[in-house]
Design a protein around this nucleic acid. Sequence first.
DNA 1: GACGGGACTTATAACGTTTTAAATGAAGTA
DNA 2: TACTTCATTTAAAACGTTATAAGTCCCGTC
Lengths: 347, 347
Amino acid sequence: MADTPEPAPSRARPKSGKPTLRTIADLTGFAVTTVSRALGNAPQISVETRRRVHEVAAEIGYLPDRAAQRLKTGRTNVISVLLDPHEEILGYGISLMHGLAKALKDTPYHLIVTPNFINDSNVDAVRHIVRNGMADGLIFSRTEPFDPRVRLLLENGFPFVTHGRTEFSTPHPYVDYDNFAFAYEATRRLISRGRRKPMIILPPKRMTFTQHLLHGFMTAVREAGVAYEIPDEIDLDCPVEQIRDYMSRRAGKPDAPDGFACGGEVSALATITGMSDHGLTLGIEYDIVAKRTSKLLSQIQPKVETIYEDLTDTGEQMGRVLLARIAGEDAAGLQVLLKPQIGFAEV
Amino acid sequence: MADTPEPAPSRARPKSGKPTLRTIADLTGFAVTTVSRALGNAPQISVETRRRVHEVAAEIGYLPDRAAQRLKTGRTNVISVLLDPHEEILGYGISLMHGLAKALKDTPYHLIVTPNFINDSNVDAVRHIVRNGMADGLIFSRTEPFDPRVRLLLENGFPFVTHGRTEFSTPHPYVDYDNFAFAYEATRRLISRGRRKPMIILPPKRMTFTQHLLHGFMTAVREAGVAYEIPDEIDLDCPVEQIRDYMSRRAGKPDAPDGFACGGEVSALATITGMSDHGLTLGIEYDIVAKRTSKLLSQIQPKVETIYEDLTDTGEQMGRVLLARIAGEDAAGLQVLLKPQIGFAEV
DNA sequence: GACGGGACTTATAACGTTTTAAATGAAGTA
DNA sequence: TACTTCATTTAAAACGTTATAAGTCCCGTC
């Protein structure tokens, strides 16, 4: 009647530009259901329809609404990563996350970060995530032989992958570095340089990989029949100055070690400083072989021999493994042990 | 009739334990709407009702479904942080994230991480997040004077906070470190130690804080009337070895600098190594004042004087600022400039 | 010419919230 | 008594998606 140029309302007015299934439905003339299935490439939808729907979807930049999908399907499309605050391993968190993100790229998964404030083993965070369905999968590190987080997750059938192994009989996905091989090789190198009393600086005892490192160290030591020493006052989680002080004190007493296998770059530096407090020089009175996780320090202190652990790669593998696990693959097949590249260790 | 002990079906059977508003409604006898409002502490709901509803909710461990809330309200309860892969600043990403997480604790916000793979300025990621409503707020660093990300966000009225300032006339929330003060103080310290030709190693030119550092440096230099030098072949983003090589080469030529203001710990170490390649010793032939962001290196190289930047605190402040911004506070009031604690710099 | 069955498509009902608009009583007022 | 007001509660609709269960057509078969 009047001059109200009301545009033909399809069904509901799109409130704000954001395209939805309905937008595509209106544009193509198909029903919302059809569009949904077409986008999901359901075989019952004709090829031509699928093509057309995809075309229009791409054209208008359609992106499914995460909230709606999550509400309907129960899948969150979220991977949660528990972050420990330890700084010993340079760039640990960031490298891992970059690897993870690389694996999660081009998947619908988002990476959400839950730092660990409270206790050392973040069981509460894990419980919260499992009970409230906050994620589809979980990632964490620094596992203990009978890690309560792993137990909880296994009991609940919740997908996860650890950086580090456990000793549960039920297999679970993990990506781990062969710390036995690292410690063995590091110690052998010290010995082959003529060092006769190697020492290894270990992570806290409760962690699984501490045992692996110890085992590698002891194997090399026994094979060579040399003396050895394991400090019980310090570990890799200690503040730097504590390690330095310890080394300094130890160097002043009889039968001081003359070779050091260090699980991280920071402890290697602390060792150098501690020893030099006593006038001892790296490469002369003693040697160090350290695990290297960044590009930083080996460039600075070329006399520290290093064996590389690629944390970005680790993260990427963890991402892949977790995705496979979420997709239903068997846990037993999702266990990755990354070997130190002994031959190319200096790269 | 028969002996089917069918329990009175309230309305719908709860399919899997997870409590919902309906659960509370059934338990208390109120309607779902009432429960929802009671939990939101709507003033129209009687005090007694609110109390009772909260009580039951706590009892059964009710937690609102994020997906449903997000779908209905449009709010995502997500904060997105764009992560740069630069390693120069030790522990940058992790410290910041811990601070952020601290600020976000006890809020409904989750922290999701979007690493930057592609180009240096992650405009695409920002655009994606804004256009598809992937988050309620955004956090990023390394701003440029007319940072395209900031422009995009300002245009769209999207809440964000930067680590670093810009030169847009429209104010926006930021938390920044006073790099002018840092460079000024660092340079003055070098000069007061008798150094007569300071050099400053700057970040890439395009970043805003490069100008601040330069300004601080030049101010100190001009005040003292000493010579100075600014390397144009290297910056803080360079690989370590490149910095070391440059220093080594420069030390061999005439009029070499005798004092270094370093924007990070790694470049300080690289400088030390480069200089020592030429037989020059820190504290003898030259001095260094560096920005310190971790506890690691100053313990190792006590002769490097440092000025501290607390990145965890920075992260926490950024979190607070962003929350305030999301809550509607004015951008102009949400600009924080963190001063170097000159007096307590050695802590 | 009715019937079974492919090959496609679709209406409807959820998922768990919040929002809008209304309903219910119990007072208070005229 | 009837009419308003207030305080409190509620039903119904909607957010955008997917799952379930029906539709359509059209073709070949008996």
